[in-house]
């Protein structure tokens, strides 16, 4: 069948592995919309999408699933509707809640991988801890204006503690906001990382942080000492 014909970078067994995978995407806003869409199109079998928010007009400049017709609607339910017509082969579990230390373990459950599309430091640190406890890898991404970062965290790495220790709950995005293109760029790299982790490829950003500056076109991979 044609749906995955252009996924020629994957062998048949790799494709089967993706279709048998379950990925939990935390956040369904700027990053999350693109991440969910790309994971579904590439052929991930099961997605859990988690967000407690509804769409409003400030989402329209960048959030893939926000339209002028669904303002006020629950983000994860809109995502589920969209994926049902994009790729009905992807099973979607839509969780209309904000992730926290109380619900994280239940929601993430038996996922093979967690992908970060959150917008607060405190919830990311909670997720890093729960993923460590559950033994699940965690692909981190964050955006602000022209800038973004990605790293892949395996249980025990605790990379986010290094990045966000003793900092506030938000970064420079409070001042800069987020345009349409930065979430799409960072989401793409997070999805590439997610696919590589699921397929056991070694070239991931483990203990390394990719810092992207789309304004000056600078792309730095920073080695973190563990």
């Amino acid at each position: 069948m044609g749906r995955y014909d252009r996924n020629r970078i994957f062998t048949a067994s790799e494709m089967e592995r993706l279709q048998a995978s379950k990925v939990c995407v935390l956040g369904c806003g700027g990053l999350g919309g693109y991440i969910v869409e790309m994971l579904s199109r590439v052929g991930i079998g099961e997605l859990t999408i988690v967000d407690g928010d509804v769409f409003d007009d400030t989402n329209l400049n960048r959030q893939l699933f926000a339209t002028s017709e669904n303002l006020g609607e629950v983000k994860v339910f809109e995502a589920k509707k969209r994926i049902a017509i994009v790729n009905p082969e992807t099973t979607i579990e839509a969780v209309n809640a904000y992730i926290d230390s109380e619900n994280a373990k239940t929601i993430i459950g038996d996922a093979d991988l967690v992908v970060d599309a959150l917008d607060s430091v405190s919830s990311r640190l909670v997720v890093q801890e729960i993923c460590e406890e559950l033994g699940i890898p965690f692909v981190h991404g964050a955006i602000a204006g022209w800038f973004g970062q990605v790293t892949t965290i395996f249980p025990g790495d605790r990379t986010l503690a290094r990045l966000y220790q003793d900092k506030g709950d938000h970064g420079i995005e409070e001042e800069l906001g987020n345009p349409s293109f930065t979430p799409a760029a960072i989401a793409s790299i997070e999805v590439a990382e997610a696919i590589k982790v699921l397929l056991g490829k070694e070239e991931v950003l483990r203990n390394r942080i990719l810092m992207i500056d789309l304004l000056d076109h600078e792309y730095h991979v920073i080695q973190m000492e563990n």
Binding site: G27, G29, G30, L31, G32, D116, A117, L118, D119, S120, V121, R124, G141, A142, I143, A144, F147, G148, Q149, L163, Y164, K167, G168, D169, H170, G171, I172, E173, N178, P183, M211, I222
Partner: peptide, 8 residues
């Protein structure tokens, strides 16, 4: 030096 980036 790099500033914190935290949006999603």
């Amino acid at each position: 030096i790099f500033p914190p980036v935290g949006g999603g």
